[in-house]
Design a protein around this nucleic acid. Sequence first.
DNA 1: GGTGCCGGGAG
DNA 2: CTCCCGGCACC
Length: 478
Amino acid sequence: MGMAPFSAVSVAAMASVLSRRLGKRSLLGTRVSAPGALSDGVLAAPQIHAVLPDDVPCPQPAEESSRAPRFPSPSRRQQVLVTYSGQECTGLAEQHNPPSDKVKVLQPEQSLHTCWRLQDVPEALQRSVSNSIDVPKRKADAAVEMDEMVAAMVLTSLSCSPVVQSPPASESGIPPSRAACDPWKESGDVSDSGSSTTSGHWSGGSDISTPSPPHPEGSPKHSSEALSSPPADDGFETDSDPFLLDEPAPRKRKNSVKVMYKCLWPNCGKVLRSIVGIKRHVKTQHLGDSADSDQRKREEDFYYTEVQVKEEPAPETTTNTSPTSVSTPIIIQQAMAKPEALLVEPPVLEPALASSALSQSAPSSFWHIQADHAYQALPSIQIPVSPHIFTSISWATATSTLPSLSPVRSRSLSFSEPQPPTPMLKSHLIVASPPRVPLGTRKVRGEAKKCRKVYGIEHRDQWCTACRWKKACQRFLD
DNA sequence: GGTGCCGGGAG
DNA sequence: CTCCCGGCACC
């Protein structure tokens, strides 16, 4: 679903997803309230909880139908199971009167015609999700409202739209989005890449990670206790845990933009990925953690700024590729004007957190440089690096200490322990500006004949495997 | 355009 | 890991 602004369109889409699951335009899950004689429609709220499968789905007009109850056209009848007062009975939904939301249900067993009011879940969802759509409130009963709210929240989180407007009740703790999400909308392709990192991942955790959209300082209200107090989250962990934040990597990761938040406190360049994290950082590290001061809560907003991090494919501008340049560069631009912040310096992590986080992710703390093909074998070299300084390692120094390697052969740089580096680390790697070795780009084309030439393309099966795989030929080495 | 092969995806 | 292929640099 991408980063589409959470508009009525996506509501409609969500609703259609829902209806797809439940059977298109079915009444399954529809809550109806029977007026008058049957019940008061509140506590004993009857529910249509099953729909026989033979009903014919109607084409779904896009938006209107998400407001108008999904219901067969008057000419069609839809069989439903209706429960009320603990009793279950089948019925035939005969007629729907949209203006009044009334549904006429025929219950043959009781030879009863009943009239129900209709409230279906997507509508509840819509109501809770978009406060720009005016939906009249039908019940004052809080419990029923909560039911719908919960259902809506579940659906909302399932649909994984990161830009979620706060429900009208506004106690949910989901901060409202605002214009700062524009880069996300406009990038159009945010669901990939790093996006992998910040775009609405489905946080398995129970903590604050709402499908973390970048939500900006616009709403000082939202950093209330609901967000900041969970004991298990300490900002950095939740912000950079690669396992929580990693979502299945999409195919391409070009031009993805993610928004990070940088602490503006003097001498603190800490960059976090969530607004909550940065606020907590500012609050705890700089403002002091004096609990309930409202003023402090507001002040947090002034001490961080939003940074857009754009990840782009490597342009390969130079004629040489350094032996270690393996990552795509990240272009970091400031959303708010602060030219000196073009480089994101390594975050000043709380030492305990930093060491624990890094030592967990890179226990052996070695740079491991080696050739990656057997036929390119070279002695592998390990450079011990303290995890604490690994982001600021001087590449020039590091490489100068290496024995002279053929620059074209030793091109893979990786941790000795296979583990996905967090996007944070990745960006630091790039910021650390690897050295450019002013020598040949790639392997100089060999003079020797290659399998392709020797056997021809029609005898591809006789090629060496490397040639077959479009790798450097192993059979006719230079 | 053909070739060699790097980088990365899929399974 | 194997297998495959897009895409780039070189010819």
